[in-house]
Design a protein around this nucleic acid. Structure first.
Length: 460
RNA sequence: GUCCCGUUCGUCUAGAGGCCUAGGACACUGCCCUUUCACGGCGGCGACACGAGUUCGAAUCUCGUACGGGAUACCA
């Protein structure tokens, strides 16, 4: 049997990291078993769904490199099929028309609350003669759920979960306006799409009971369920805007690489021995549902950042340069060349693209520029004399890393200074700061003309 | 309220009755390396929520308590 999974977001907001991880797990699981991964946009709530949100979800998945198979299914386009199934269930006696008005429902609920007893709706219309139906109320269609026994869900992550059927009331499958409810639509769609494994957040665990009943009423095979724990904020509370970046696209803005985010998300709630760094291929080879934990996990930016630094160090220099140049708004080919030249040294020192870009800004400066406090302090009268000497020395000879290194060591030795005492003032002159990649590489990236101009300006 | 789920270092996790004096990673921290900043290397700190029980033996099994989370919609 071909394994088929799906990711079914509702386009009512952003693609947050919890959703992204759910998509990742579905994707990895299907790939691991050589199956298919489908995408279904659950836009049945017309009020809250927007095209913009759909686009954000699509863009987020693409950025993360989570590709789905086949056409994207829009749930709204399947409403007639949902209704059709509802009518069939009605005809077969697995569902019934309920004429309870919203007002009556509210009254029943309030009374139950007042009496401090749990509210379990038992609709009088479940067994009442439809001939008694009031003519002024448009009915909803409710599932005729079993009243006795229990419903059991064999969950691949949570284990066997069971609930007494008396706890579950007859849910609405078709609203009075003829539109399907989510609980019904999901089942019909998953069945029609031949989904074999439903992997989703555990906030849906209790929905699985009701959905199982719909499958059973229709005589359909129930897919395997896997309810994965939610991701919480660093404070342990449910993820929300106040936790900083929530949307995956925000992570992109904050300078995280998609491969780093995927690796981080994979390890959040899933483990495989001591494996920490996993490429996409390794993840596909190793991923399985038995490695998924049951407890909610917290978002940890420090770990994400550390992972990002790892991937930054092995990323392609041209790719990083393009990103940095875009973030800095640089268009001058000469400056772009400097950034590219120094990229191997820069990327060793940054943890995010934002930091990388910041570390490259000195390459875009135009004389005269400001020095930060520490850099300015390095430019003592004595240092300025030395800088003039350095400038003179570097005027001739090959302007290569090796030659520059040799020349600077010569100056240090001749003047009885440590190399650091020579390099730091040069670094200050070149960058206006006290940190940069190795001084020889920095000089080479800037080019002889620009480098000497900066050193002379600082020596003056 | 009721139903369902969960609980190992600060965080992510390894752990499927003896291999656990509980391992790894991040964070924090000491030292080394060093051309600044990083990287790296070697150390340190640090956890089985609590209480009963089963067992020769429990982080691992059972029950209870506490604390979290989710669900209880003509939302998804």
């Amino acid at each position: 049997m071909t394994i088929r999974t799906r990711f079914a977001p509702s386009p009512t907001g952003l693609l947050h990291i919890g959703g992204a991880r759910t998509a990742l797990f579905n994707y990895l699981f299907s790939r691991h078993y050589g199956g298919e991964f489908l995408l279904r946009v659950e836009d049945t709530d017309r009020e809250r769904s927007t095209d913009a949100a759909t686009q954000v979800i699509l863009e987020g998945l693409e950025w993360l490199g989570i590709r789905h198979d086949g056409q994207t299914v829009f749930q709204s386009s399947r409403q007639s099929r949902h209704a059709e199934v509802a009518w069939q269930m009605l005809e077969a006696g697995h569902a019934y028309r309920c004429y309870l008005s919203p007002a009556e429902l509210t009254a029943m609920r309030e009374q139950a609350a007042a009496e401090k007893r749990p509210f379990r709706l038992v609709s009088p219309w479940r067994d009442r003669d439809p001939a008694d139906a009031p003519s002024d109320v448009k009915p909803v269609i409710r599932l005729r759920a079993p009243r006795e026994g229990e419903t059991v869900v064999e969950d691949l992550v949570q284990g066997t979960v069971r609930v007494a059927n008396v706890e579950l009331d007859d849910m609405i499958i078709l609203r009075s306006d003829g539109t399907p409810t989510y609980q019904h639509a999901v089942v019909v769609d998953d069945h029609d799409m031949a989904i074999t494994h439903v992997i989703r957040g555990d906030d849906h665990l209790t929905n699985a009971f009701r959905q199982s009943q719909v499958y059973q009423a229709n005589g359909w095979d129930i897919p395997r369920f896997a309810h994965i724990p939610l991701i919480h904020g660093a404070d342990g509370a449910k993820l929300s805007k106040r936790h900083g970046a929530v949307s995956v696209l925000e992570f992109r803005e904050q300078g995280f690489l998609p491969e780093a985010l995927c690796n981080y998300l994979l390890r959040l709630g899933w483990g495989h021995g001591d494996a920490e760094i996993l490429s996409r291929d390794e993840a596909i080879a190793l991923f399985d549902l038995d490695g998924v934990g049951r407890a909610a996990s917290r978002m940890d930016y420090a770990k994400l950042t550390n992972l990002n630094a790892h991937y930054l160090r092995q990323a392609d220099n041209d790719r990083l340069t393009a990103d940095v140049v875009a973030r800095l708004g640089v268009t001058d080919p000469a400056v772009i060349a400097r950034v590219r030249a120094l990229m191997p040294g820069l990327r060793e020192r940054a943890r995010t693209m934002v930091e990388l870009a910041a570390s490259a800004t000195f390459l875009t400066r135009v004389l005269p520029f400001d020095f930060d406090m520490k850099a300015a302090a390095l430019l003592t009268p004595e240092a300025k004399v030395m800088l003039a000497e350095v400038a003179t020395t570097l005027e001739s000879g090959p302007f290569t890393s090796e030659a520059i290194d040799a020349a600077l060591r010569g100056i240090a030795e001749a003047s009885g200074r440590k190399l650091g005492q020579v390099a730091q003032p040069i670094r200050a002159a070149l960058t206006g700061t006290t940190t940069s990649p190795p001084i020889d590489a920095t000089l080479v990236a800037l080019g002889r003309d620009e480098a000497l101009a900066r050193i002379r300006a600082a020596a003056a």
